[in-house]
Write a protein that binds this DNA or RNA. Structure first.
Lengths: 195, 195
DNA sequence: CTATAATCTTTACAGTGTCAAGATAAAAGA
DNA sequence: TCTTTTATCTTGACACTGTAAAGATTATAG
């Protein structure tokens, strides 16, 4: 039962232990040395696999982003709504629910820069963050179908995304409590956005 | 030119130096010892005025919240729109612009708990966070005036607030760039929220 | 004028990220 | 198979962090 000198799969172990630590204690209580200890390894061992703490966090971020993206894609795949408009609402709902179920993920994922889009140019708004791309693609179809002028489509996409993003923030920060069915309540929020 | 042993106004100096530090370096680079050094005082001096780091941050949060509230109240006072509907949009605009002008304030203000409201009960949604109260009061008048059923008013308030809150988050995290007039663009976002 | 209390300094300790030097073992080359 | 190289991990060190205890200084009250 002697522990071997080489861990064998340390990089993945560190990533998963790090994510577990974020889930359990939040980002403010996260530390490299704790992650190393969780893997039964010395405090400097992570430096064989990651340049520094920020580098580990960045790879963890990519890991969680992939999970998040998977959730959104599942929603698209399993849903069979006649119109994209309803699908968009379900995507928004999944977006918020993902963070409701993993409260620590929201501030973790969005505390470091993860995307950048530019509204200065005309044309479709480009972005390298897959979850936003998925949301954008469906929203674009919906808005075009509604007959919204092309010049307003980008703005409307941002607005709709800001709503679900803001809801996620509000909910995960526990600014609003609710002791009944969150899932339907979130759907209400998304449908009820009267301006 | 001898520095006196007693600072004289250290508590306020610490608060303001702390806020300046947040503005210049962000919350991640904030430290008690830096704040003390900025005031030309030993690293343990803050403990005569604050229980610990978190306590100082909490008082700084209150300080910034008061500034934020002042901005929103100025908007209400100086605006002379015929209907509350337009006022609500201007409040939302001020909300986002405040954080656009002080990018570090958003994550600082909302990284620690600052409010809690409960949607479980019927009746007007109560909250102890003054900026939200101001927003809620105007939103409530607008929605009642629109003839929205009482049961949907609370949900709609949360949705509208989530929009401006989400926009603030997106903008301050620099997720969306824009090289022209941000003020009018933000107004577009708020008006364009098609659901 | 003295005693008390408030304010600030010094010292100390545990925890943090990071680096350099060394130990161990796996992989590659002979 | 034996040696060399390389990847991986440990140890020790350093500066920085928050926080507590003990002492110094000065304002305030009696």
């Amino acid at each position: 039962m002697d522990k071997p000198y080489h861990h064998g799969n340390l990089k993945n172990a560190l990533l998963e232990a790090g994510i577990a630590l974020i889930n359990n204690e939040g980002e403010s209580n996260f530390s490299l040395r704790k992650v190393a200890a969780l893997c039964g390894v010395s405090h400097a061992a992570p430096y064989s696999h990651f340049q520094n703490k920020e580098d580990l966090l960045k790879e963890m971020q990519a890991y969680v982003t992939a999970q998040f993206m998977q959730t959104l894609e599942d929603t698209v795949r399993t849903s069979s709504y006649p119109d994209d408009s309803e699908l968009l609402i379900q995507i928004g709902k999944s977006y918020v629910l993902f963070f409701l179920h993993h409260p620590q993920y929201f501030s973790f994922l969005f505390s470091q820069p993860c995307m950048a889009l530019d509204l200065s140019m005309n044309g479709d708004v480009e972005c390298d963050f897959p979850p936003f791309r998925l949301f954008r693609d469906v929203a674009q179809r919906v808005l075009k179908n509604m007959g919204l002028p092309a010049t307003k489509i980008n703005d409307a996409i941002i607005s709709m995304w800001a709503l679900v993003h803001g809801l996620s923030s509000i909910v995960t920060m526990k600014y609003v409590h609710y002791d009944q069915n969150w899932e339907t309540k979130i759907e209400d929020f998304i449908r009820n956005n009267h301006g």
